[in-house]
Design a protein around this nucleic acid. Structure first.
Lengths: 351, 351
DNA sequence: TTGAAAGCGCTACCAA
DNA sequence: TTGGTAGCGCTTTCAA
């Protein structure tokens, strides 16, 4: 056994006296000192380590010391030591989110919480793919869930190389290397298109939001309509529209010329704007033109005529959480893609 | 200088060969090895440390090695070493959030991002005060922003003792020890009440959402109306209402008996539901009853009659971010409270 | 200009 | 049953 001469380091400066003016953040060493035990014992007690038995009096002393100091463990130190965390990271949405997505996120958080994960929404400013992925990777999340299409194959690679055991995209298309919950909005458009066809409509308009950031949804919804009507004698006309009274009025002015007898409005909000504008210029709904929205918002039931709409069925938070958990437990499994978006037409009065 | 005999530790097991089957997460040591320099040099280069000059060839070698390995620094290790982070933590909302709040959060994130903070929304399951605060404190955020009233004085204390340099509440009341951005919803009710009074209404109803979690807003909004009408001959009648057609219909059925000539509906969505129900039973708006909503949602402009509403003025993300930044820089400053909610009536046709 | 090494707070292994 | 201690990945001081 080799030996060498080594300088003994000076004893570290002690933390300021408990009654001192500047109070520093208490560490497990402080708790140990106050309880008169070692840091190891503190760790055992506070983590209820099963393999080690600590006497009840000691336990009590440690607990009391911790409470007295207001000790809170340091997550960074812990996960650094452990080599992994239970953090599931999602980018925070940077666009106004509807009630549907809002509830979805909340459910998911609760469900993942039950599986002992911590969900964190990371406020990426505006970075994309690599850049964003790098920022996320710095936190070493155990899993990353990315809605929409802000992540590419390179980003996935970055995340995996920094230890993410599961990268899951929720969106219209699959990304190389990542699991995918395919929310294929085709089905939404398809349902709407088929419904309009069933109601005898043959000249169908499809509203496309002018607002940026919605193309990932509106594109597939349009394709879905096309698909539903393919091979029939029906026509499909794209109709760019801003969520805005004036733009709707302009569109309504052209309505007779367009000669459409049915329209799918992307969602219920656009339906509402358009419906109002059509009524203002005397177009009868559904007699002259049938209108179908999507998302089944409450406002649809309050419109007159009551709005027909496509109800979206998202997977429950529970299902999704289980799925993420499985992916985390078996990171070597090949990426799976699941279609998870269901669509049902709710037929009311506008079609 | 004292010396002692010390056992030399075995050299640590090297990371698996780069071409090996199992690839572990690259660390700065790996980068150093590949570039043939020390870890210190890697750190200097990648952080552009100004005080130290590194030769250009070395810089290049380090950069290339980092890129080749896909090296991403470990945020936990970094902030552990640094003793602080730039993380601003907010609890993720656990209720469906409207477009107003949604945009507010986004703006704030962007603005704080410009100041080099990282905003993280923490998905607390359902914990309150202490419990939630402890969970947040584990991440050692430099600042914590809490909307609503989920945080008490004890929670504030926990956060501060674990190093949060600023705790800011955004809500109706101030909390001991924390900065407060007072969003006093009184002003909303006050504006609406005063407006209805000006329009000659004397028997005023105030809709109170039955939905849980909105009391923090609805209470003050009601008080505001009361305050605006205090000392006059006007009466105020609270009207519990669920955001739901049936409940609205029930309320409308009682409308004549209630004998109200004006109503403030909490917000535009409740206004919409009630408006529809009133029209269905033949109550004329605004002739029989004036209706005023709040939040100035787009849907208000689309209703017929067009909905009068109270427009809320929130502070800009920029302002708020600067304010948080100041609080972080001077943590010893006494907590400040600022009223930040403005309200303006937008008079349309319903009142 | 570069390297060696200490140490941030924590847990888990081994020894007592 | 408890304590000593190595080491997670990083930055930074001091020394070469």
């Amino acid at each position: 056994m080799p030996y060498v001469m080594v300088k003994i380091p000076p004893t570290p400066t002690p933390t300021p006296a408990p009654g001192g003016a500047v109070r520093s953040v208490p560490t497990s060493a402080d708790v140990a000192r106050l309880a008169g035990v070692s840091r190891a014992t503190v760790s055992y007690v506070l983590n209820n380590t099963g393999a080690v038995r600590i006497s009840d009096p000691t336990r009590r002393r440690v607990r009391e010391a911790a409470k007295e100091l207001g000790y809170v463990p340091h997550a960074a130190a812990r996960s650094l030591r452990a080599g992994h965390s239970r953090m599931v990271l999602m980018p925070a949405p940077d666009f106004p989110v509807g009630p549907l997505y809002s509830r979805f996120i909340t459910d998911l958080q609760v469900a993942l919480g039950r599986l002992d994960y911590t969900v964190v929404q990371y406020g990426t400013v505006g970075a994309h793919d690599d850049e964003a992925a790098r920022a996320w990777a710095e936190l070493r999340p155990v899993a990353v869930l990315v809605p929409g299409s802000g992540l590419g194959p390179r980003g996935v690679e970055v995340l995996k190389r920094s230890g993410a055991r599961a990268v899951v995209t929720l969106g219209p298309d699959t990304v190389e290397g990542a699991h995918a919950l395919l929310m294929d909005h085709d089905v939404v458009g398809h349902s709407a298109g088929a419904h309009l066809f069933d109601r005898g409509r043959r000249r169908v308009g499809v509203v496309l939001p002018r607002e940026a950031g919605l193309e990932t949804f509106s594109g597939p919804r349009l394709s879905g309509v096309r698909e539903a009507l393919r091979g029939s004698d029906a026509t499909v006309t794209p109709l760019p529209l801003a969520l805005d009274e004036d733009d709707a009025a302009r569109l309504a002015d052209r309505w007779r010329d367009l000669g459409l007898d049915g329209v799918f409005t992307y969602n219920d909000e656009y339906a509402m704007v358009l419906l109002r504008a059509l009524q203002d210029v005397g177009v009868r709904v559904p007699e002259d033109t049938a209108v179908v929205g999507a998302d089944n918002l409450m406002l649809g039931r309050l419109l007159r005529p009551r709005l027909s709409t496509v109800h979206l069925e998202l997977p429950s938070g529970r299902e999704l959480a289980d799925w993420v958990d499985r992916a985390v437990r078996d990171p070597s499994a090949p990426p799976e893609a699941h279609k998870v978006l269901g669509a049902t037409v709710i037929h009311r009065e506008s079609s």
